[in-house]
């Protein structure tokens, strides 16, 4: 059974300027042991979608969905108490900024053991053993002594490892990682990605990985949702989306990344002209039409259809054909 299934998720933020439509009808589906990447640039709604799934949206937000099921059980009408029993327990989250996600006034022990005892009960010694086991598992040497340290005493990479250990304290079924390596050095990023992939395998978790980095996606993603202006514009396996990108936005993103072995004197990077459309207007038409090189007259009058091909590869576009063959990569 699908671990997490979300259909037609919408999130609006009430602002002084009106209703900001951050997420405009997004479907998300994650299987056990698989990683779904939500990819997009700032403001595309990827973080808001994740927060909605955890019931962590800011107070100014309102959301709706046609379906939101964790392991087959609907969460649509779940109250805060049900959600807080799920958060940090069956579903946990790793945030981008380890300094702000950890409480600076508590020791590592307080924060790790607190989560465990809140959800699993048990005594202090059990919680401590679990914390030490996980700190060691995430590659922190001298775990016993680290327990009594405060977050500010740790480097950025260590803090991120502590956050991962904390997210794993209750053996979650689903882990949501929101740009977990963006604030880190490239070498540390590689270590953390390997660690997350190993842990996902070992614990059979489902993972949602939010990032803007297509290189990271290529290494960690099984399935990819490309988001633009609050919608999923392309979805498919990693090989399909990266190897046979079908939506003009995905293609544009891929062309804008510098490739190994290429110098700027030989070739220019592809760019996407224009800017993201207003978030305040309800707009059923294609959100990318204002910037698209391949737009047709129909794009300005009719909502884009979902074109689909083999292996659940689909794109929201009038002017594309899904040509990918499952497993075929460029």
């Amino acid at each position: 059974m699908t671990l997490l299934s979300v259909k037609n998720l919408r999130v609006n933020l009430r602002t002084d300027a009106g209703r900001l439509r951050a997420v405009r009808g997004v479907d998300i589906s994650v299987e056990r042991g698989q990683t779904l990447c939500l990819v997009g640039e700032s403001g595309c709604g990827k973080s808001m979608a994740a927060l909605a799934m955890l019931g962590l949206l800011p107070p100014s937000a309102e959301w709706s969905a046609d379906e939101m099921k964790l392991d087959g059980v609907s969460l649509l009408n779940a109250g805060q108490s049900t959600l807080s029993n799920i958060r940090g327990n069956r579903v946990s989250m790793i945030f981008q900024e380890p300094m702000t996600a950890l409480n600076p006034t508590f020791t590592i022990r307080d924060q790790l053991c607190g989560v465990y005892r809140r959800h699993k009960g048990g005594n202090r010694a059990q919680a401590r053993e679990r914390a030490i086991y996980l700190l060691e598992r995430v590659g922190i040497s001298n775990a016993r002594n680290r327990l009594d340290q405060y977050p500010h005493e740790l480097s950025g990479g260590l803090r991120q490892r502590v956050l991962i250990a904390m997210a794993l304290m209750c053996e979650p079924e689903l882990i949501i990682c929101d740009e977990p390596t963006t604030a880190l050095d490239v070498t540390t990023q590689a270590q953390i990605l390997v660690l997350l992939a190993e842990l996902r395998e070992e614990l059979g978790m489902g993972m949602i990985f939010i990032t803007h980095d297509l290189g990271v996606v290529s290494r960690i993603g099984d399935h990819i949702n490309v988001m633009y202006a609050g919608r999923v514009v392309e979805s498919g396996t990693r090989d399909a989306v990266l190897g046979c990108a079908s939506h003009p936005y995905t293609q544009g993103l891929l062309r804008s990344v510098p490739r190994p072995g290429v110098n700027g004197l030989q070739s220019r990077l592809g760019t996407i002209p224009g800017t993201v459309p207003s978030f305040y207007q309800a707009d059923p038409l294609c959100p990318f039409r204002g910037r698209c090189e391949r737009k047709l007259p129909i794009c300005a009058s009719q909502a884009p259809p979902v074109r689909s091909g083999a292996g659940h590869h689909s794109a929201l576009c009038h002017n594309t054909e899904i040509s990918s063959i499952a497993g075929n990569s460029a």
């Binding site: 590689a190 390997v194 980095d213 290189g215 290529s218 290494r219 990693r238 990344v257 490739r259 190994p260």
Partner: peptide
Amino acid sequence: QSVFSPDDDAGLPTTRL
């Protein structure tokens, strides 16, 4: 070896710092 390109389908990095 810590740099990832979207063209890679090499899986996770093998040698790492």
